[in-house]
């Protein structure tokens, strides 16, 4: 179970006959619980197209997917033997800009819109909204407010609550922290990590912030020119791989470690994962 890509290819049909390959030969398996994955890569490398396949907004033009048991390929789509709408309840996707989804008069109505589409009763949905508004770090007083009079960060939280209210197994967030100040970003990342840990859901985040990748992710996926070029541990990616030509930054903590090593002409036995580890290493150096 989970999400499985088998030799998936996706071609955008343009006005000219050529089209444009956004995904090439993607092979990938994602577990339905307990994963915390970050997806990185340049703009235009195919990240958004990849996650839009995970909840069947887009379907492969070649190859096959298995999304929580639903088999999706050209044939099942043509014969309409697979229902796509139920998949989107199980795999929740939060778009980059909350403005794309907020439309109701109140925050509460907006949060219950998704679950009601999937047949959840209004009372049950409202109950969920009351819980989830706290999960995303706001309080119940927000429920009666208009979603359009909120700050950027608050809108983002409401849009996330709206997806969580459908109670998906897997939660995907497309650049959820872009444009937020450092405090807003850290708070939101803690919310995602909390959803992952406490509710046991698989969380997938698209980001350009390598510090987020290095600090939180257990697994990192790298897209490059429509190909999935890396799938594994972030430490391994940043320390062993030659990632210069993937146009990725190095996390600050590693950059600093390398600079210290170079300037002091020493070699640390390990690579620090966070600031505390680096502090320990520096203290040892003193002794």
């Amino acid at each position: 179970m989970g999400i499985k890509f088998k030799r998936v290819e996706f071609k955008y049909q343009g006005f000219d006959e050529k089209g444009y390959l956004a995904l090439s030969n993607i092979n990938l398996t994602i577990k339905p619980q307990g994963e915390f994955i970050t997806l990185i890569g340049e703009t235009g490398s195919g990240k958004t197209t990849l996650v839009q396949h995970m909840n069947a907004l887009l379907t492969p033009t070649s190859g096959e997917m298995d999304i929580l048991g639903a088999i999706i390929n050209q044939e099942t789509i043509r014969k309409k033997s697979v229902k796509l709408n139920p998949i989107r309840q199980k795999v929740g996707l939060v778009f980059q800009f909350p403005e794309y989804q907020l439309f109701e008069e109140t925050v509460e109505k907006d949060i219950i819109f998704g679950p009601k589409n999937y047949g959840v009763s209004e009372t049950e949905a409202i109950q969920r909204a009351k819980e989830l508004i706290k999960v995303v770090g706001l309080n119940e007083s927000y429920l009666s407010r208009s979603p359009f009079n909120l700050s950027g960060g608050e809108k983002k939280r409401v849009s996330i609550a709206g997806i969580l209210a459908m109670n998906p197994d897997i939660l995907i967030l497309d650049e959820p922290t872009s444009g937020l100040d450092p405090m807003g970003r850290d708070e939101l990342l803690k919310v995602f990590f909390d959803i992952h840990q406490r509710l046991g859901k698989t969380v997938i985040i698209i980001t350009h912030d390598m510090n987020t990748v290095f600090h939180y992710a257990k697994r990192v996926l790298v897209m490059r020119d429509s190909y999935l070029v890396y799938d594994g541990d972030p430490m391994n990616l940043f320390t062993k791989k030659n990632i210069e030509h993937w146009n990725l930054d190095i996390p600050d903590i590693l950059k600093l470690t390398y600079q210290i090593e170079e300037r002091l002409d020493v070699t640390f036995p390990t690579r620090p994962r966070n600031k505390e580890a680096l502090l320990e290493m520096l203290k040892e150096l003193e002794a």
Partner: peptide, 13 residues
């Protein structure tokens, strides 16, 4: 198109 996809993600068929 993006808005349509975003609402489809919330179960709008």
């Amino acid at each position: 198109n993006k808005i349509m996809l975003a609402q489809a993600s919330r179960g709008v068929d």
